[in-house]
Amino acid sequence: GATAVSEWTEYKTADGKTYYYNNRTLESTFEKPQELK
Protein backbone atom coordinates (compact mmCIF):
# COMPACT_ATOMS: atom_id res chain seq x y z
CA GLY A 1 0.00 0.00 0.00
CA ALA A 2 0.99 3.59 -0.51
CA THR A 3 2.19 5.53 2.48
CA ALA A 4 0.21 8.67 3.15
CA VAL A 5 2.53 11.60 2.75
CA SER A 6 1.78 14.54 4.97
CA GLU A 7 0.42 17.52 3.12
CA TRP A 8 1.88 19.82 5.75
CA THR A 9 5.03 21.81 5.11
CA GLU A 10 6.89 23.58 7.87
CA TYR A 11 7.78 27.23 7.36
CA LYS A 12 9.21 30.03 9.45
CA THR A 13 7.81 33.54 9.69
CA ALA A 14 10.03 36.61 9.40
CA ASP A 15 10.35 36.73 13.18
CA GLY A 16 11.39 33.08 13.41
CA LYS A 17 8.13 31.45 14.48
CA THR A 18 7.40 28.06 12.98
CA TYR A 19 4.11 27.48 11.25
CA TYR A 20 2.64 24.76 9.08
CA TYR A 21 0.95 25.05 5.71
CA ASN A 22 -1.25 22.42 4.10
CA ASN A 23 -0.89 22.52 0.33
CA ARG A 24 -4.08 20.53 -0.24
CA THR A 25 -6.52 22.47 1.95
CA LEU A 26 -4.54 25.75 1.78
CA GLU A 27 -4.77 25.90 5.55
CA SER A 28 -2.03 27.30 7.75
CA THR A 29 -1.61 26.89 11.48
CA PHE A 30 0.88 27.66 14.23
CA GLU A 31 -0.10 24.46 16.03
CA LYS A 32 1.52 21.23 14.98
CA PRO A 33 -1.00 19.33 12.84
CA GLN A 34 -2.31 15.97 14.04
CA GLU A 35 -0.62 14.18 11.11
CA LEU A 36 2.81 15.32 12.28
CA LYS A 37 2.48 14.18 15.89
Rank of each mutant, 00 (worst) to 15 (best):
Y21R: 07
R24M: 11
D15G: 08
A4W: 10
T29R: 07
G16Q: 03
L36M: 10
K12V: 12
E10G: 02
S28A: 12
G1F: 14
S28V: 15
A2G: 13
L26E: 11
E31M: 08
N23Q: 10
K12H: 09
Y20M: 01
Y11E: 06
A2P: 12
T3W: 08
K37W: 14
P33G: 02
T18K: 06
F30L: 07
Q34D: 15
N23K: 11
N22E: 01
Y19T: 03
N22F: 01
T18G: 02
Y11N: 04
S6Y: 09
E7N: 06
T25N: 02
K37F: 14
T25A: 01
E27A: 05
N22H: 02
E10K: 05
Y20S: 00
A4D: 12
A4S: 12
T25S: 04
T3G: 14
R24Y: 11
T25Y: 02
A2V: 14
Y11M: 15
Y21E: 03
G16C: 10
N22M: 00
T29H: 04
T13E: 03
P33F: 02
T9H: 08
G1I: 14
G16A: 01
S6T: 10
K37S: 14
T25V: 01
E10Q: 08
K37G: 15
F30Y: 09
L26P: 01
A4K: 08
E27R: 04
K32A: 07
F30Q: 06
E27I: 08
A2Q: 13
E7T: 06
R24P: 01
K17L: 12
E7G: 07
R24Q: 10
W8T: 00
P33L: 02
E35T: 06
T13R: 04
A14P: 12
Y19H: 03
Y19L: 09
K12P: 02
E7K: 03
G1K: 09
V5A: 14
A4M: 12
G1Q: 14
Y21H: 06
T13K: 03
T18P: 06
P33A: 02
T9F: 10
Y20D: 00
E35I: 07
E35V: 08
Y21D: 01
L36N: 07
R24I: 15
T3P: 13
T3K: 06
N22K: 01
T29Q: 07
Q34Y: 11
K32G: 03
Y11S: 05
T25R: 01
T18E: 03
E7W: 08
P33D: 02
K12Y: 08
K32F: 05
Y21I: 11
Q34R: 10
L36A: 05
G1A: 14
G16E: 03
A14F: 04
T29V: 09
V5E: 12
T9R: 10
T18A: 06
S28G: 09
R24E: 07
T25G: 01
K37N: 13
F30E: 07
T18H: 05
F30M: 08
A4G: 12
Y20E: 00
T13Q: 04
P33Y: 02
K32T: 08
G1R: 09
N22R: 01
P33I: 02
E31Q: 10
T13L: 06
P33C: 03
T18F: 06
S28E: 09
T13Y: 03
R24S: 08
T9I: 13
Y19E: 03
L36I: 09
G16F: 02
T9W: 07
G16D: 03
S6H: 10
E7L: 07
W8N: 00
K12N: 04
R24T: 10
T18V: 12
K12D: 03
E27H: 05
E10M: 10
R24F: 13
T29K: 05
P33Q: 02
G16R: 02
K12A: 05
K17I: 15
E10F: 04
R24K: 13
K37Y: 13
S28L: 15
S6G: 12
Y11C: 15
A14H: 10
E27S: 05
N23F: 10
Q34L: 14
K32V: 10
V5C: 15
T3F: 10
F30I: 05
A14E: 10
E31D: 11
Q34N: 14
R24D: 04
N23C: 15
E35S: 11
K32Q: 07
K32L: 10
A4H: 13
Q34E: 15
E35G: 10
Y20V: 00
E10T: 10
W8D: 00
L36S: 05
E35F: 06
A4Y: 05
T18S: 09
G16K: 01
K12Q: 11
K32M: 13
W8H: 00
W8I: 01
T29S: 08
T13G: 08
K37T: 14
V5S: 13
Y21Q: 06
Y11P: 00
K32R: 11
K32Y: 05
T25D: 02
N22D: 01
D15Y: 05
N22S: 03
F30V: 06
S6I: 08
E27N: 03
N22P: 01
Y11I: 11
N23W: 15
N23S: 14
S6N: 11
A14G: 06
E31S: 09
Y20R: 00
K32S: 04
K17Q: 10
R24V: 14
Y19N: 02
D15W: 06
K12T: 12
S6W: 10
W8K: 00
T18R: 05
P33W: 02
E10D: 02
T18D: 03
A14S: 10
E7V: 08
E31H: 08
G16V: 00
S28Q: 11
E7S: 05
E10Y: 04
A4I: 13
Y21A: 03
N23Y: 10
N23L: 08
L36K: 04
E7C: 09
L26N: 15
T9Q: 12
S6L: 09
E35H: 08
W8M: 00
Y11L: 15
A4Q: 13
R24A: 08
T25L: 03
E27W: 03
G16P: 00
Y19S: 03
V5L: 15
T29G: 03
N22V: 00
T25Q: 01
A14W: 07
A4F: 08
G16N: 04
P33S: 02
K37I: 15
A14K: 11
S28T: 15
K37P: 09
E35M: 06
E10H: 03
E7P: 07
E7F: 07
Q34W: 13
L26I: 02
T29L: 05
T29Y: 05
R24W: 11
E31T: 12
A14N: 09
N23I: 11
T13D: 11
D15Q: 05
F30T: 09
L26C: 15
D15H: 04
Y19F: 11
Y19G: 04
E31G: 03
D15L: 05
Y20A: 00
Y20N: 00
W8P: 00
L26Y: 13
T3M: 14
Y20W: 15
E31A: 07
A2F: 12
D15A: 07
V5Q: 12
G16I: 00
L26Q: 15
T29D: 02
V5H: 13
K37H: 12
S6M: 09
R24G: 04
Q34F: 12
Q34I: 13
K37L: 15
L26G: 15
E27M: 09
E7H: 08
G1Y: 11
G16H: 02
Y11T: 05
Y21T: 06
E7Q: 06
T9G: 06
T13A: 06
T3S: 14
T25E: 01
K17N: 06
T25F: 02
L26S: 12
K32D: 04
T18Y: 07
E35Y: 06
A4R: 07
K37R: 14
T29N: 03
